[in-house]
Design a protein around this nucleic acid. Sequence first.
RNA 1: GGGCGGUUAGCUCAGUUGGUAGAGCAAUCCGUUUACACCGGAAAGGUCGCAGGUUCGAGUCCUGCACCGCCCACCA
Length: 1001
Amino acid sequence: MENPKNIPEKFLKPYDSSETEARVYKLWEESGFFNPDNLPVASDNPNSAKSFTIVMPPPNVTGVLHMGHALGLTLQDIIIRYKRMRGFRTLWIPGTDHAAIATQSKVEKEIKKNEDKSRHDLGREEMLRRIDAFAKDSHDTIVSQIKVMGASCDWSREAFTLDVTRSRAVNTMFKKMYDDGLIYRGNRIVNWDPKGQTTIADDEIVYEERKAKLYTFKYSKDFPISISTTRPETKVGDVAVAVHPDDARYKEFVGKTYEIADFCGVPLSIKIVADESVEKGFGTGALGVTPAHSEIDWEIADRHDLPRLQVISELAKMTVGDERLKGKKVSEAREIIVEWLRAEGLLEKEEEVSQNVATAERTGGIIEPLPKLQWFINVNAKFKLQNSKLKGLETGMEVSLKEIMKNAVSSRQVAILPEHFDKTYFHWIENLRDWCISRQIWYGHRVPVWYCLHCKKQYVNLETGAKIYLTRHGETDSNKEGRIAGSIDLPLNQTGTEQAMVAAQKLKNENIDYIICSNLIRAKETAEIIQKEIGGEIIIDPELREREYGVVEGMYGKDIKPLKTYQYEGKPENGESYKEVEERIHNAFVSHRKKFEGKNILVVSHGGALRTLMKRLLDLDPMEMLARTAIKNADVIQIEISKPCENCKNDIFEQDPDTLDTWFSSGTWTFSTLGWPIDKKMGMNEKFVERIKSGDKTNTTRLEKKDWNIGDILQLENTQTGELFGYARITNIEEIPLTAEKKGTLQEYYGEKDLTEVAPTWKYSFVYSEKSDLETYHPTDVIVPAYEILFHWIARMILMSGYALETIPFHTVYLTGIVRDAKGRKFSKSLGNGIDPIEIAKKFGADAGRMALVVGTAAGTDMKISEDKIKGYRNFSNKIWNITRFVMENVETESLGSSTSKLDEIMDEWKKIAADITDDMENFRFHLASEKIYHYVWHRFADEIIEQSKTDAEIKSALIHIWTDCLKILHPFMPFVTEEIWALLPAEKRNLLMVEKWPTT
RNA sequence: GGGCGGUUAGCUCAGUUGGUAGAGCAAUCCGUUUACACCGGAAAGGUCGCAGGUUCGAGUCCUGCACCGCCCACCA
């Protein structure tokens, strides 16, 4: 077939998305236009170009993206591409979320399944390494998926909630809140998951409906009031009975206290109190108050100053009573108590009721409300606004976090789309209580609080120096048999060798400089095994040896009961007392600390020796020490050194073992991604300042290594004048040797200074700007989350931003709905109904998937998606392809034909539609905009205008003009096919379509 | 229990400030006319959940009801 117009051959075949998309994405990436610093507007107009920002809701690194993510990404990309074409300095920051509990429990489950090990078997360090590896894989998959979707985000600014820059933001935020009295540590009823051994958030609870029995009974025969409960086992922790103040039945008893000598083996002291929260009509109208095991009862105890007796342990076992109860599981205890009540004739009624049982979302464990020491954010405490940019809240006003959250939305400074969600938002805020932010898991931001080992004084963001690790040697046969070893010199057995290797793994990344061990073979072997893995020098110190047991050496521990026989000061014949050991080993410890000041050291010693050392370090009294179980073989204890405690002058500390709720870090997301807090400075000399100011925006400098990281934003300061002249965003860090050639250049900067002293070994590449990213891009413009996380996340970002920056995090919240399958079911693994966005992109093209997700999907509404729908838009891609072919074959001239009524009508109609679509884009009606352009292109332009043009030359002259406009408008929705076509259109020098100007009227 | 939505063509859903209903898919009929069969043309299909009200006029505003869904709380 002849091809007179040199139509690219590609057009003779149907559009092939699989051949196109990856190639086009690469083209975009290489153009640099995803980064607003490289956009033409940025260089034309560096300071006045209006910015437009979106931060991506970071997907959890728990696996892969699903269609819900695909919807969110598509909408964000549509907005971003549209704004970019409108000439904004457009930034879309991508990132991922470490999703603490979700990720840890996922990895834990896998390890359990594959290796039958728990996280405690692996230890904190090894577990974290495993999770990091998993998160890294998951991250890589997610990034490639985001790219497949066509997302035009700035990868140079990619962030992770757990990376160094974001961790710095978290710690800074924690300290600020702590200093302002908004963060406190307190005993509160928390949702304790006995199975996962952690606290969990209210929203990680799933309620399961179950049948339960409601028992009505009296504490004793002569107790005047009957109460009802579904949990009789908690009643041994009762301290009061609460009745409504107006309840005539009970009025006479209020204020009295009854002593119950024996309630299933436990004595109770019950006070009758009057409390408004009690419903007269429910049950007997009297409520047994168990402060330690019910949130509501805890509050009643607050109001009436009642004691709080904990009767259930973290393992969901009873902690009080005689042999009938103590140590029994709660479920067993329940039956025992019911039986007892029945036998005593105290049980009055048993009713079958249905009840919602709280269970942990992740582990399925039944939630046990327990009082625990936790960290909280007080949402009602007031603080003073320093520099408020919050509408209606002036600088100097005293506000609470709750008020900030409420105000942001009620003032319309933050608009939620669809609007009706703000009602739900307010309802939630009104019911908000203090936010528990500590979690007993390992993966996440560790609570940045250190405790003095002696006096327990708290320090936030303590700067710690060297670390000391203490470990006991691995197992010997003597340990195994439970024999006293003392100075009997036995080697490690097989288990001991393995234990030492585990310890070595734990210590691998800790940069230990010296390993100091006793002169006994079991310690030396342990030290050698560890040294093989971690390096460092071994120093043998006979003072670090085990307690000398004299005559009892070699005997079975159980036979001599050393704890009882030889107390702290007592000693076996020819042996040492613990007191003597303590003196000896502490002196040795202190001398090593002094000798290796500033170095990380590992001390390998023995059970008894380390135990007495810990006694001294923790300032325990002798009985406390004796009550502690011995340190296990190869256990590692970590101690951190810092400046002496203000209180007790000791200088060793340990960090809080808990981690922070994942929403604490994601709450900072809009500004931590933009480099907050910017408190680091890079000093520059005059020459460099000039070079930067006049020259390239991208620069490199060679400096001594500081603790800077890629992505950090630094203030640039003129070292001569102290003047602040701009910001540097670190884009790359490279270690480089100092060459002779470089030396010359450097000598210029450093003058007479000896270069060996300043010898820079690190090359920092950075982008210079006069304004920081934070100033330029924050508050962000739009955020596009699923409505499910309105409270979890959106509210918390408003809180964090309102508190730390005294501004809103974003102007508009565009909520997306849930994407369901064709039958309206949520996608889930167990149903096997998952539609993988990547599969869709492969099969039909990402463009088709994007359109299918967007057309007709209004904000905040759930949607159903099916392959049929996607197939329709695959066909549309091809339609666009073929329209282009027709238009190219029929372009006779670039100029529009002379004005005729017919032509004007068509052009006017198009302009009207384009304006209408633009209006939809401006007002977040993407579901309408996409439908309109689809409809126009296919059913008006192709079906009618092109058909008419076949016989009408006037109309033909309009085709290319309308069509290039159409491609531009289509581009945000279907970026790949339109970009590909754009490159194939006959024209001399063209921009990428992604930076073409949006057709405006 | 409290709150928020939804109910429009067989299916999935639009319908922006009230002006006598729209799209896709499916189904029906016709058509291989050189951009495209991942196509074109034609026709069909709805008293907009129910009952009241406001209005010249209501899918759209108000009241009540029914059913479905979601979120929050968790009643001892």
